[in-house]
Write a protein that binds this DNA or RNA. Structure first.
Lengths: 228, 228
DNA sequence: CGCGTGCTTGAACATTATCAAACAGTGTGG
DNA sequence: CCACACTGTTTGATAATGTTCAAGCACGCG
């Protein structure tokens, strides 16, 4: 088997073999997109809902003066494009070549309208997203730069495919320093400095700038929840 | 009519007169709670879902060392207690004496299971919450202290009852400085200093410490989105 | 080989936090 | 009714964390 980085290994389009999954399969189209492409543009008509199959994307919001915030990194299994109103609330761009499934909003809505199981399913999905967002509000509101970075690294490790959460000891980071900084509410320089600081303390290793190895996972965990 | 502050004026328990509302009405119990009470405790079994009728509450998350973050202020019309798993993800405490409706999780789930309209409704509600959370991620990640405060004041004005959004020129703040600080990821001192700064620039007035009057709304709006 | 992009490192600076103290408003008990 | 205590707010001086600006380095690509 070819040595593809984990984030590029595809996962099955639909994981749970239930009837909601079958219905979704019927209405979805598989799409691939290359690095840098914009999949969704903020304030444009919300015509589709998506699910990531492989690769990585980022959800982005901008301030009028150009300051950028990365709301979320989208990895295999994640949905995106949900919106309450007529238009999308944020842009979504491709970080590393990605494959995803596209569902038209009208057929998605029709599914919700006729099938209570689908409604409950997606209600749960969005509740989970909301909970994750709250976790990040805590991170941005009350954690130090180092704590944010440690939390991020552990979180990425837990989210990577085919990893037992809490046990994965290396991560490939599909995004660059600038994306990480904008995700953690820091600057590129600070992210870079803290990574080298962790490296000098032999808590992580950085074989390449996108490949992180945890040398002392427990210590990272201690840092991440602010216990020092 | 008694001069009750707007945040204590009750709103109808159920606003939209549709059949989902009727179903909800059947399964809800009205509850009142006094200032300081804990309605939901983080990590406890998620047995109920709630909807605020009057008053104000705060959703809170804690770090092991005691740092606190206020995830959201809950005002009349807001739902709370949604959770993906078995337990709540955050605590909810009463800020100003509150009245709310309590729905048991099992009857709420049953409603979702039999009624597609209910599923869609709450899917939409949670999507809206998610969007608001993303707005706040941008605020915490990329806005300055002053920008955060301006955004907060305008946001509270828009959310107060019986106000035309964008036109309300005064707000009563049911929460104290410490709550505001924990909501904006700042300290009490910074919040206080920035409020007096806005007052000295005659952008707001503070007849009492919880009553804010907008003297130059446009300027607040300019500040809030970082255009200066 | 040279260019470009992204990453790292350093020095000076700014913003916001921390520590400390004074002040205001409210309720309680003498 | 006043003194007192309590809580919440404001203000000041100092310090820390993270930013900004600037330059050098590394890797990949034409």
């Amino acid at each position: 088997m070819a040595a593809r980085p984990a984030y590029l290994r595809p996962v099955p389009a639909i994981s749970a073999r239930d009837h909601v999954a079958t219905e979704l399969e019927r209405i979805g189209t598989v799409v691939t997109a290359v690095r840098g492409m914009t999949v969704i543009e903020e304030d444009c008509a919300a015509e589709y809902v998506f699910k990531v199959v492989a690769g990585a994307l980022r959800a982005v919001r901008l301030l009028p003066d150009g300051r950028r915030y990365v709301t979320k990194f989208l990895l295999p299994g994640d949905y995106f494009g949900f919106s309450e109103g007529e238009s999308y609330g944020q842009s979504v761009e491709v970080v590393g070549d990605a494959t995803f499934i596209r569902y038209s909003r009208s057929s998605f809505d029709a599914l919700l309208a006729r099938d209570p199981a689908a409604g409950r399913r997606f209600f749960g999905v969005v509740c989970g997203e909301l909970c994750a967002a709250q976790e990040r509000l805590l991170l941005l509101g009350r954690k130090s730069a180092l704590e944010r970075l440690a939390t991020f690294l552990l979180g990425m490790a837990d989210r990577s495919i085919a990893a037992t959460p809490g046990e994965n000891n290396e991560v490939h980071l599909p995004m660059n320093r600038s994306d990480i900084a904008d995700y953690l509410g820091l600057t590129v320089e600070t992210v870079s400095r803290l990574l080298t600081q962790l490296r000098h303390h032999r808590i992580i290793d950085l074989p390449t700038s996108n490949h992180v190895v945890f040398l002392k996972r427990e210590e990272l965990e201690t840092i991440s929840c602010g216990e020092r």
